[in-house]
């Protein structure tokens, strides 16, 4: 059986798991190509207008591989941690795909709860059933896949740059170099190192969010806010670059939280959508880096 894996949304975070899982079950894996203009255009045509860029791009990836495989992985990730959520659109993504794209092969629809192995295995069983009737094979594949995922080290922590910024944004915005126009490279070329939130331990982030009135119920909000708060306290960074997709509901809240709570920190908000032009993007980054280096010189003098 050929299993299609679209390279969109949280693929960048969970690719070791999904790839190993399906490989162990004896499937041939067909990954969609890296995001390109064609995929972006397909996605914007098929998807509901109001959706955000990552969701549109995901539609494009599915459309691209739907004719080549028998099963497509559409991860309905409901929760990553207990009592925390991610975006509502993730919870409804199989329905969005189903209703926006025609002539689909089988898609995986079972919900994924990542916080408990038992609940997560339910997904694995539901999905594995399509490929094999052997329960133990699924169990073994699930365990192997989880081990692979544990080995996977995420995060960027550049060393040896004069300036360092926190690059904040959803995994699928930061690691998809087409939709962010390789922002990390652009920063590196200007002599700015990048650090992302995965570098800092989760427990530290839990401590940092205690100062909020309400425990943030989004995993992303807790991670980004906690990371920024910690990084500033330890003077790990000179500024913040926030990469956000237009109309992202979660970002609209986190950006404001960070801006309100860490007032005197240089903050650059980069919005990406299907119309973003590279020239304007570059100019804004350059201006921001200029400002950072002038600030640093000023502080030293």
């Amino acid at each position: 059986m050929k299993v299609g894996i679209p390279k969109g949304l949280l693929y960048y975070k969970y690719k070791p798991f999904f790839n190993t899982f399906f490989e162990e079950l004896g499937a041939e894996i067909i990954e969609s190509p890296d995001t390109n203009k064609d995929i972006l255009d397909l996605g914007s045509t098929l998807c509901t207008d109001e959706a955000c860029l990552p969701i549109k791009v995901f539609h494009g990836h599915v459309e691209k591989i739907k004719d080549k495989c028998d099963l497509i992985l559409i991860p309905r990730i409901m929760q990553i941690y207990k009592r925390e959520f991610i975006c509502p659109k993730f919870c409804g993504i199989p329905e969005m795909i189903e209703n926006n794209i025609e002539d689909l092969p089988i898609i995986t629809k079972a919900p994924i709860y990542l916080f408990s192995s038992d609940k997560f295995f339910k997904w694995a069983y539901e999905t594995g059933k399509i490929l094999t009737k052997n329960f133990f094979k699924i169990q073994k594949a699930f365990e192997r896949a989880q081990n692979e995922q544990k080995k996977f080290k995420e995060g960027i922590n550049d060393k040896g740059y004069a300036l360092k910024v926190a690059l904040i944004g959803h995994t699928y915005n930061i690691y998809d170099t087409f939709i962010n126009m390789n922002v990390k490279n652009k920063l590196n070329k200007l002599g700015v190192g990048v650090i992302t939130h995965e570098v800092v331990d989760d427990n530290v982030k839990y401590l940092e969010i205690k100062k909020l009135f309400k425990r943030p119920f989004w995993t992303f909000a807790r991670e980004y806010y906690g990371f920024i708060s910690y990084a500033l306290k330890e003077s790990l960074i000179d500024g913040i670059v926030y990469l956000s997709s237009f109309a992202c509901g979660i970002d609209s809240v986190i950006v404001e939280l960070i801006k309100l709570d860490f007032e005197n920190v240089p903050f650059l908000l980069l919005k990406i959508d299907e119309h973003t032009g590279e020239a304007g993007f570059d100019t804004r980054i350059e201006a921001f880096v200029d400002m950072l280096s002038r600030r640093k010189r000023g502080n030293l003098a």
């Binding site: 009592r83 119920f217 989004w218």
Partner: peptide, 22 residues
């Protein structure tokens, strides 16, 4: 009234409080 996600409404209070304080 509040809620605890996943819709944005649950975060209203936190933000509104901070903005008004500012």
């Amino acid at each position: 009234t509040g809620s605890c996600g996943p819709c944005r409404f649950g975060e209203y209070a936190e933000l509104q409080m901070k903005i008004l304080k500012k």
